[in-house]
Each structure stands twice: as C-alpha cells, then as structure tokens.
C-alpha cells in the first residue's frame, strides 16, 4: 500500500464526485486516499489556525469534509484506507503542497470559463504538481466510477 491519491474536497457536488472517483482509482491500485479540505487564510487574523482556539471556519470545513466523505463512502463498496487533512490555506496551495511526491491528484470541476481552467484551481494544480492530475467532471456517469469499484477487493 505505497501509493497515495490526494483529492481536494470542499463539500460541493463536484468534489464529492471527485472523491468517489479517487476512491475508485485507489481501490484499483490498492492505494490509500488523502482527503484535503482547505479553509481560507485570507480573512482576518482571528480565523487563522491557532492551537487550542475554536474556529467556526475550520469547523465548517471539518463538517463539510466529513459529510462529503460519508456520502462518498456510502456508495463505495470497496474498503479504501482514508486519511483526512484540514489546511488553513488557499485550496490550490494546499493541494499543490499535499500532492508533492504523491501518485495522483484528483480535483472536481463543473465546467466554467476556459480561463478559469488555466488559472484557477485545476490549472494551477496542473502546472505546479509533479504527479498526474485527474480532473473529474460533475456529470460523469456512475458507470465510469462504480465499474472499477465492483471489481476491487472488498
């Protein structure tokens, strides 16, 4: 179990799709999944990560991450080791950092302007990450996700 699939999750439908696909990819390869959720660090200093200090923003991110994983795992028959990471950072920064030295980075997308794909989350990850980057559309059909999971060891 040496490989790691890193997936960015913000609680959106697109990110849950990406997570399901990441679980399938990991199941096929007997790898583990690292779920990365970022909460912004551009706000006032009181929303920054401070040990021992409760942060509403961090709690919202944690709940969104947990809900997304619960939703994805409910539809995932294969047992895939999962670890969860909360980063007080911009999403693209957190993903680029976490993907270093890993085997695959997965991000979701809902389409949008092409310029966003060049300069936004997927575009920046694509340019800065040294491992393969999978961009998963929100409307990818279940057959393309669940078929490999059906063959994976449970």
């Amino acid at each position: 179990m040496s490989g790691v699939v890193v997936v960015g999750v913000n609680g959106s439908t697109e990110s849950v799709r990406a997570l399901r696909w990441a679980l399938a990819a990991a199941a096929e390869r007997h790898w583990r999944v690292e779920v990365v959720t970022a909460w912004p660090h551009t706000g006032p200093v009181f929303v920054r990560e401070v040990p021992g200090h409760h942060s509403d923003a961090r709690e919202r991110a944690r709940v969104a991450q947990a809900d997304a994983l619960r939703c994805a795992l409910a539809e995932t028959p294969a047992a895939v080791p999962v670890s969860m990471v909360l980063e007080n950072a911009r999403p693209e920064d957190a993903l680029v950092l976490r993907a270093r030295g890993k085997q695959l980075l997965v991000v979701g997308t809902s389409g949008g302007p092409v310029e966003e794909h060049r300069t936004g989350l997927a575009g920046r990850c694509r340019v800065q990450v040294d491992c393969p980057v999978a961009v998963v559309p929100a409307d990818v059909d279940d057959a393309r996700i669940l078929e490999p999971l059906a063959r994976a060891p449970g």
Partner: peptide
Amino acid sequence: AEVARRASCPVVLVPDPRQDTGPATDTAL
C-alpha cells in the same frame, strides 16, 4: 484546459519528467 473543461469523462494530465523543469515553486507554500 479546454479538454478538462468540456470532457464528459475524467481527464488525467500526466507530466513528463524528461521535459518538465520541475513544478513551479511558490514560497508561500
């Protein structure tokens, strides 16, 4: 960017270590 934006299935973009000069660095990271 265009294919990743419009494709109806997952798109995997694979770097080529023979050509890449390494991932762009960002000291903020």
